[in-house]
Amino acid sequence: MEDEVRKRIAEMLDSGEVTAVIALKDVLGMTTPCVFKKGDDLSSLRLSPHYPLATLAMKMHKMDPEYKIAILCRGCDERALLEMAKRNQIDMDKLSIIGIACDEETAKDCNCSVPYPSCEDLIGEKLEELELGDAFEDYKRMSTAEKLEFWKKQFEKCNKCYGCRNICQMCFCKDCELENELWLKKGRLPPDFPVYHLIRAFHLAGKCVGCGECESACPAGIPLMTINRLLRDDMKELFDYVVGNTEEVNPLYTKEEF
């Protein structure tokens, strides 16, 4: 798969279709995000572990909207880009996509039902009929009181490092409500239960692309994806809204009745 991607990158750069490619590469045994340009050695290219590359594309696009970029793109990356485009953060026409499909293990790990981008010349095998099962069976069996106990223990571990917010591709507001002292007083640790985590979860409803980066970034090991995924299912159930794969606007922002 890596070779195929290398070939595609080289083609795009050589033909001048794009000026830069956002991808991942190996630096001293660590995989880091990078930008490849014409003539660069592509042998260090890596495809995993996944990393929120869409943010880089957005930032580059904001610096120079005319710059032509290509981006290594998994299903979640594409959803992120589409949601960004809906919010005028990026112009999809200026962006080429090198779509890669996730393998079964990764997809299951992320509880991801669409582990591939929608582009035609996809690299890798498209897993369409993936059996995910109900990841929350045990959780849903808990009583209300047990759930509260569970989350009290979890949220108590939070040291308000903002790691979950900082890594999140979909967090690009100029002023973050998590820093608003009306809701969360500075210097109080752990942050008042359950304000920090509920505000974050609610703001990401209909926006979270399910990349799982917040949970992997959390030094306290809080299962943040559980809430994100529950809300993802709620958005589907209540408003029939699925993040990323439609032109629709988040129903929470629209005036229509449901």
Partner: peptide, 8 residues
């Protein structure tokens, strides 16, 4: 739904 998920 959200408050229900965390036990309220």
């Amino acid at each position: 739904r959200l408050i229900e998920h965390i036990g309220i």
